[in-house]
């Protein structure tokens, strides 16, 4: 790794204990790094600019998601809200565990004792 690439690596053990970084910001920087080297690390001089860019990136991502959801699953969401109300956190859980079976299958194989093992 050259010096620039080394700078990009965010270590959770350093980020957690950096008092000058907001806890939420520390976690989001770390997770961003985990997902892929999209966001370059802020240097000491350009910290504020980097933060702004980062926020812009986040905003644009949220906007993108918003439009994607509206276009693709608009009808489904509407019927869902009629059934279950507007509680988005509960709706997300229902989508994950009741609509999509892949998450439940993964969970069962990883965490639950199979009926054979139980016997």
């Amino acid at each position: 790794l050259n010096s620039n690439e080394a700078k990009k690596t965010w270590d959770i053990n350093k980020l957690l204990y950096m008092d000058n970084i907001d806890p939420n910001d520390a976690i989001s920087r770390w997770k961003k790094e985990e997902e892929g080297p999209v966001y370059s690390s802020p240097n000491e001089d350009g910290d504020a600019d980097e933060k702004e860019n980062y926020r812009e990136d986040q905003d644009s991502e949220e906007n993108d998601n918003f439009f994607v959801k509206k276009d693709i699953s608009g009808n489904f969401k509407q019927s869902h809200e009629v059934l279950y109300g507007n509680d988005t956190s509960a709706n997300k859980l229902r989508d994950k565990w009741l609509v999509d079976n892949s998450a439940l299958g993964r969970l069962k194989s990883r965490f639950f004792v199979s009926p054979k093992q139980r016997l």
Binding site: Y17, W30, E34
Partner: peptide, 17 residues
């Protein structure tokens, strides 16, 4: 789990330190 990191936990760890 990595998903368990949140603002409250970071504050907790910093206060322990």
């Amino acid at each position: 789990n990595k998903a368990q990191f949140d603002e409250q936990l970071v504050l907790f760890l910093r206060d322990i330190r």
